[in-house]
């Protein structure tokens, strides 16, 4: 029986500051496939993991925003390259998580990777499309320049294991924000895999942080955290009011799902951008 070997079982971990720690609490939970089969043990993130992730995201934000838009696009494109070479693994896990056919899963993965490329293209176009020169009655230039909000907390769609994750996470990142992501509670594995790919895509540590665990436990911590500037509530439609109320305590920008398809428009890209207006004399 020389060809028999032990299984190499995988524990799905968090992504905080470019490292893959187990939860600070030491807890984990079992994730099952759409058909109920055991898929793996996933870290059950805690309040303190959220705290650490926000510290990492805050520290990374200056560097990420300070990089040129062109460079941010290159990094995002690199993520598409990484995902493309591991697409079969992603598709397999989309099938398991969502219970769709292998063929549909390939379509989901293709769309997700295409969206990554789409966001890669957007990094250096946001300023043209969303900024501008304003007419003023005087010898001045007046520019409106889009600026990243800062640290954005994203509660991703609970059902779409990969597609929802890509849009909700990369839109704010593309605009220069850093993110702390609460992955889908029941279907976190494709998100964790994509997180592993970000680690080989030249993202500075801390730009994308992924926490797996109980949404009901962690979402309020993120919503109330005063050092978070934006909150995407896509994955918590029922608790949206309560969470938005917590977010109001520190005047966060909040993106609330309203039934319309966010990804067909630029609403996600616009959601976590501030406008900075600059005056400059003409001819000086």
């Amino acid at each position: 029986m020389s060809d028999r070997r032990l299984d190499v079982r995988k524990t799905y971990k968090l992504l905080i500051n470019g490292a893959f720690p187990r939860s600070e609490s030491g807890r984990s939970y079992e994730v099952a496939s759409a058909k109920g089969a055991f898929l793996g043990n996933v870290a059950l993130g805690s309040r303190k993991d959220v705290r650490d992730a926000v510290v990492a995201a805050r520290a990374a934000q200056t560097k990420w925003w300070g990089a040129t838009a062109y460079n941010r696009g290159q990094v995002l494109y690199r993520l598409a390259e990484m995902a493309e070479s591991r697409r079969d693994e992603l598709a397999e896990h989309v099938t398991l998580a969502e219970g769709v056919s292998a063929k549909s899963a390939q379509v989901v993965v293709s769309r997700a990777i295409d969206r990554v490329v789409w966001y890669a293209g957007w990094t250096d176009k946001i300023a043209q499309v969303m900024g501008g020169t304003n007419p003023v009655a005087g010898p001045f230039f007046n520019f409106s320049v889009p600026v990243a909000s800062g640290v954005v907390a994203v509660i991703v769609d609970q059902n779409s294991s990969l597609g929802g994750f890509v849009d909700a996470v990369l839109a704010p990142v593309c605009a220069g924000n850093t993110v702390v992501v609460l992955a889908s509670e029941r279907r976190p594995i494709p998100a964790v895999l994509l997180g592993e790919m970000t680690a080989t895509s030249d993202f500075p540590p801390g730009v994308i942080n992924i926490i797996t665990g109980r949404t009901s436990e962690l979402a309020p911590v993120l919503a109330a955290h005063e050092d978070v500037d934006g909150l995407d509530l896509t994955g918590a439609p029922e608790e949206a009011n309560e969470l938005a109320l917590l977010a109001a305590g520190s005047i966060k920008r909040v993106l609330r799902p309203d039934g319309r398809d966010l990804d067909a428009s630029l609403r996600r890209l616009r959601a976590f951008i501030e406008t900075s207006t600059v005056w400059h004399t003409i001819g000086q």
Binding site: V54, V221, A224, H225, E226, D227, G249, S250
Partner: peptide, 9 residues
Amino acid sequence: RGAYVRPDE
């Protein structure tokens, strides 16, 4: 406060 605080406060 029961919530994490902004360092630049």
